[in-house]
Write a protein that binds this DNA or RNA. Sequence first.
RNA 1: GUCCCCGUCGUCUAGCCUGGUCAGGACAGCAGAUUUUCGAUCUGUCAGCAGGGGUUCAAAUCCCCUCGGGGACGCCA
Length: 454
Amino acid sequence: MSPLNPLSSLIPQKEVRVRFAPSPTGSLHIGGVRTALFNFAYARKNGGKFFLRIEDTDRERSEKRFEVEILESLAWLGLTAEEPFWRQSDRLAKYQAVVKTLLTSGCAYEEETDGRKAVKFRMRSGAIQFSDLVHGTVVFSGEELSDFVIQKSDGYPTYHLACVVDDCEMKITHVIRGDDHLSNTPRQIALYEALEHSPPQFAHLPLVLGQDKLPLSKRSGEVALLYYQREGYLPEAILNYLALLGWSPGENREIFSLSEFSSEFSFKRVQKTSACFDLEKLRWVNKEHIGRLPEDRYLKEIKKFFLPDSDSSREKWRNEIALLYRERVFVLSDLQKLADFFIQEQPTFDPEAVQKYLLDVEVLKRLNEWANVLDLESDFSSPQALETLLRQTAEKMKVKAADLIHPTRVAISGKAVTPSLFEVMFCLGKEMVVKRLRYAANHFSSKCKDEVGG
RNA sequence: GUCCCCGUCGUCUAGCCUGGUCAGGACAGCAGAUUUUCGAUCUGUCAGCAGGGGUUCAAAUCCCCUCGGGGACGCCA
């Protein structure tokens, strides 16, 4: 017995075991990811184990493809669970055996409705109290709870029964799940009692709501994790943002890694109130993570979204462009929209940009001259050389540099907004720049309004 | 309806447990700067303790009520 802490030797330190238990009735959604994340973090924090359990007791709605998708999504996120994972449909015999003992002990009874025979659990009376790690003490009264079905007429267990039986067998120590299960808890505690098993600790996390303040649903914008993956959100950014929904490190720090979150996680800092999913902030968090990526990782990730099949000869060129846009990319798929003119034969002209900078006879005349200058003698060896040349040319034309810069930008990119024009010209190359300047000068001249009025 | 949970800027939150710093930060918004544009960057700024009672010298913080939101009450999970 330690003289410093006599209690430590009396209370055996139980290994922390938690689980994420989705049902494969749809794509993994961001609320589910958040639940998985908090489970994962709590296990990590306590040197415990994180399990995955597929709750596929709804024969109608469960689909194998969703199970596969959930597995892949968790792997992509890096929320790795113990192998192998559990699947409830593999354990029907176990549930049926438990139902039998409950029937025998009188805790359950059969009931026939509309010719279908199910088994119901006899809810006990009296107070049912538990201590929730997020909410503190919660008390329900057994009288308010009615008996409930634990085995369906098809022989499958219902959620409550399967969940409790598995949590017992998996030796789950902490059930960390969404707030929507808070009122299910007294029913499950009654089941633990009937099975003569002590209940685990419970922690009910605040719900993630859609932007409309309503619970996540198909109507509340995009809820599937897969969508965010395809848009080019980084797993670390999604996890970081979701961690912020209901938890904070307690200081003014918002960008952190999964391992930082895991080592700092505590239920003491978990919010009791539900949180709205804010796409704008997620985008910002994603941008912050993109900015923190090592260059090679950034290039590797962006490659999935920009010229993914380019051969090695264009690899260098693609990387130059990607780097040019690095601080402008919020989600990886932004690049293909922002830098589309690099890979298109002709840029797609933004009508507003054209209107503002190109529809002027004098401007187009200058662009033509400028194209000739570039064609004849230009030094495309560096962005700096191009800038010098442009400023000299503007001076000869007796116009401000900006009066040549903006039209050039629109002519070669079709856009009013790009990174530094000289970097863009440099990446695009002499041939393409000259060609596009001449095309614009020619093409838009017919569209200029005769200002003299005719 | 009954029971349970929750209520700090538009949104995410710090502060609450252990009353006493102009209620702090972030995203969005707005304004300004850079003038090679802006959805980039930098700077500044607006905005909140749901309401009402109490306890106290002092309440976002403790207590009660009201109101508001959410959840459960499925042979869904």
